[in-house]
């Protein structure tokens, strides 16, 4: 998708009235270079957030072999709790005066809350089900997801909540250092940077530390890992915790970018993040991120770049459909994902 996007981008730059832009539909809004650039940037932004959430799906699937449908709700909990924190800090007048410390505090609280949610979820709903048929924990997680969504509605009401204003120096459009002439909102740059840093930290943790090794061992074979002296329960809890923390990071980024949250915020990003995990290859962490980015850009570019020229009216309404079509296509033609799965032998069958 990235490749297609880039090719189309080049084509647009050479000739903004290229025949493809009005293939079937002569009235299509032809995308100008800057508009396309903006779409790509928002696509990347969405994509890295999907990627961060996808890590949770991917790790849990790798270790326990089931889709934790409620992971999207962990993300929602993070967005909710960072809204509450920022809102309260704003009321106290701290948000504007001490923006950076307030933001750090919000981040910390969001991560702690989402991590706790993920861990409690594992303890109460999933641990008793270990070893039951594969679809049972999946159905359970659908229930957990439903429950958490409606708890959020019960506690905070169904309406949309607005985040407080961000300071101007953050939201202003600024030039990216390395590409002169390209202006991007500061928030969007922040999202990309934070996501990149979290991803790097996670990679280090999983690939280079002892805990990470334990995690990979448990993913490969729980019984053997236990025989080798690895505390399987603890490792699984850690997996959930890390997934929760990543969803927490994604949550606060989502809050900063869209500055709005409802109880159902977690549903679509959750499904799409799962899609990203599958696109990238379940169990493959780098793949999740790459899958997220492909999905984000596809979703953001697809409607205007492909659907509109084909004569589809109101194409942006169908951006979710684009994401689902991508999911279905990948599962049909390359079920192990674009970058390969990493699963234990029993999960592969």
């Amino acid at each position: 998708m990235l490749v297609i996007g880039l090719l189309a981008f080049v084509a647009q730059q050479i000739n903004p009235t290229n025949p493809f832009a009005s293939w079937v539909n002569p009235d299509a809004n032809r995308l100008t270079g800057p508009a396309l650039r903006d779409l790509i940037i928002s696509g990347l932004n969405l994509g890295v957030m999907y990627g961060l959430i996808a890590l949770g799906y991917s790790m849990v699937y790798g270790v326990l072999g089931f889709i934790n449908f409620a992971h999207g709700e962990v993300f929602m909990v993070a967005v909710m709790s960072s809204w509450i924190t920022s809102e309260k800090l704003f009321e106290a007048g701290l948000w504007e005066d001490f923006f950076i410390p307030s933001l750090l505090l919000t981040v910390m609280i969001a991560i702690v809350v989402s991590t706790t949610t993920a861990v409690v979820m594992e303890r109460i709903a999933y641990r008793p089900l270990r070893g039951s048929p594969r679809l049972i924990p999946l159905i359970t997680s659908i229930g957990v997801s439903f429950f958490l969504q409606n708890v959020a509605i019960g506690l905070f009401g169904p309406g949309a909540k607005r985040y407080p204003q961000l300071p101007e120096w953050l939201t202003a459009r600024r030039t990216l250092l390395w590409i002169p002439g390209v202006e991007v909102e500061g928030t969007k740059i922040l999202v990309l940077v934070v996501a990149g840093v979290s991803m790097a930290m996670l990679w280090y943790y999983v690939e280079r530390t002892k805990t990470g090794k334990a995690m990979r061992a448990v993913a490969e074979d729980k019984e053997i890992a236990a025989l080798m002296g690895i505390d399987v329960d603890k490792t699984i809890v850690r997996t959930f915790a890390i997934g929760g923390a990543m969803a927490g990071v994604a949550g606060i980024l989502w809050g900063l970018l869209f500055r709005s949250v409802v109880a159902t915020t977690g549903f679509l990003p959750g499904i799409k993040a799962f899609t990203a995990a599958v696109v990238g290859g379940v169990g493959n962490l780098g793949g999740s991120m790459a899958g997220g980015v492909s999905l984000g850009t596809a979703e953001s570019l697809g409607p205007l770049l492909l659907l509109e020229p084909m004569g589809v009216k109101g194409p942006t309404q169908l951006k979710d459909a684009v994401a689902f079509v991508l999911l279905i296509a990948v599962l049909l033609f390359k079920p192990s994902g674009l970058f390969g799965e990493r699963l234990s032998a029993e999960d592969r069958t």
Partner: peptide, 8 residues
């Protein structure tokens, strides 16, 4: 909410 809890 009850549906969700019941399912779990």
């Amino acid at each position: 909410l009850i549906y969700g809890a019941l399912l779990v």
